[in-house]
Design a protein around this nucleic acid. Sequence first.
DNA 1: CAACATTTGTGCGTATGTATC
DNA 2: TGATACATACGCACAAATGTT
Lengths: 134, 134
Amino acid sequence: MIDPRRDRALYRQLADLLREQIDSGELPPGSPLPSETTLAQTHGLARPAVRQAIALLRAEGLVTTSRGYGTRVREQVERTPLELPASSFAIARMPSDAERLEHDLDDGVPVLEIQLPDGSTSVHPGDRIRLTRP
Amino acid sequence: MIDPRRDRALYRQLADLLREQIDSGELPPGSPLPSETTLAQTHGLARPAVRQAIALLRAEGLVTTSRGYGTRVREQVERTPLELPASSFAIARMPSDAERLEHDLDDGVPVLEIQLPDGSTSVHPGDRIRLTRP
DNA sequence: CAACATTTGTGCGTATGTATC
DNA sequence: TGATACATACGCACAAATGTT
């Protein structure tokens, strides 16, 4: 239940509620969240607060939103194994706007950047790659 | 220059401008961005649009914001080398709410989760770790 | 220590545009 | 066509944290 007297922003409380429903399986992968209007009405919030809550979950990679369609719980895709080459290293970071477009990445999805000994780098979608070492 | 006739949201155009200034070094690490009010006035936007632009940059891990203090370009910390153990693998993902608290992670900072052959896992801050292989 | 100005956070309301079904 | 849903953008007000005076 969302309680204005609690010392936590209303949109964070709503995000907590939805996150629990996702983690518990009550909202399984692929299932739609209620519309922003519905969430606003059922919880007694204005739509901007609902949008802030959903934006939080998007940034955490838990849901994806499509305009005119709605917000759904993200489905995990199979991760392709990718071997980390010898004498090289990898870092995790968030993609730039351009990289997100190029690799068709959802919000809340990081990238793995691999730097080879020769100095060249490659960028890989963080939700489709599993970095391995034999 | 921000142009309402262009087919790109105003707050995205502002984010592009600021991102360029960060990438070019015009806004070096540690330097403060103009206040939201100032940005709104100088670019002819309302404050909500400015806040959306800064929220984008935060989600990309480019800036950090402190209430009552302002928004500054994120300073890159030294990345500690961490060897990916043999026969194990690593994935990059965004942290849960609890993990963000536990590791004191800023917005826009992913984590590296390492899974060992015995099934145990460890989680590491994505901005302080460089995954290596000898 | 208090008072103040500055800055970001939260929350509401309204309106219009655009994509999807 | 129409209904639904999300995106963008503006306005206002007050709260809370910070740094300075």
